[in-house]
Computed example of a mutant assay.
Amino acid sequence: MISPYADCASARDTAARFVAEHCPWADLDAVQVVVTELTANALRHTDGWWRLRLRAERGELTVELDDSSPALPEARTPDFTGGGGGFGWPMVLSLAGRVEVHRTGTGKTVRASWSRRPEAA
């Protein structure tokens, strides 16, 4: 999914279809919140393109969002007075099993992943 042809809602819906088809074991709510936050941050904090990639292989779900900004995500004090943000990045960090951020030649990639838990005996 590549901008400007999609928005947060489209990205969230794409993630829901992907999870249902390829990794129904994943926490869909967590995946959708992470996708929404990463997409919203790309829309809010970059002035260029972004690309969402979803991958499921060997018991792991990976969500990657590339964007045109080299600025790395920063945790900020949440603004409880309204409008200042600061809630999204902590949610991403707490909902994903693992989060990595890498600068690229054209911006950065944020990767969130979840591993399938072994079934209880």
Rank of each mutant, 00 (worst) to 15 (best):
D47M: 06
D7Q: 07
T62A: 14
R44Q: 15
D13G: 02
V34R: 00
A26W: 00
E64P: 05
V34S: 06
R117I: 07
I2M: 10
T104Q: 10
E74K: 00
S68Q: 04
P24E: 10
T46H: 07
R111D: 02
A120Y: 08
G59D: 10
H102N: 11
A20E: 15
P24V: 09
V35T: 08
L52F: 05
W49C: 01
L95S: 06
V34Q: 02
G107N: 04
Y5P: 00
N41I: 05
G97D: 04
T109M: 09
E21Y: 05
L54E: 06
V31L: 09
H102S: 14
D27V: 04
I2N: 10
E60K: 13
R116C: 12
P78N: 08
T106A: 14
G84Q: 04
T62D: 07
R55E: 15
G86Q: 08
A96V: 02
G82S: 11
A30F: 04
I2H: 11
L93T: 12
T14E: 14
A20G: 13
T104N: 08
L65M: 12
L38H: 01
V110R: 01
E60I: 06
A26R: 00
G48R: 09
D7C: 10
C8A: 15
A121N: 09
E60F: 01
S94Q: 15
R76M: 08
T62R: 15
V35S: 02
P24M: 10
V31F: 04
R58E: 15
A75F: 01
A96H: 00
A16V: 10
D13Y: 04
S68C: 14
A121K: 06
F18L: 08
L54S: 12
T106F: 07
A11F: 12
C23D: 02
G48S: 13
P73C: 08
G48N: 08
V101D: 07
R98D: 13
S69L: 05
W25I: 10
W25V: 07
C23L: 06
R17I: 07
T46D: 08
L95A: 05
D66S: 14
R117C: 02
T106L: 12
D67T: 02
L54I: 11
A40C: 14
V19R: 01
L72K: 00
R17P: 00
T46P: 01
S115F: 05
D79L: 03
S68V: 03
P78I: 10
A71H: 12
C23H: 04
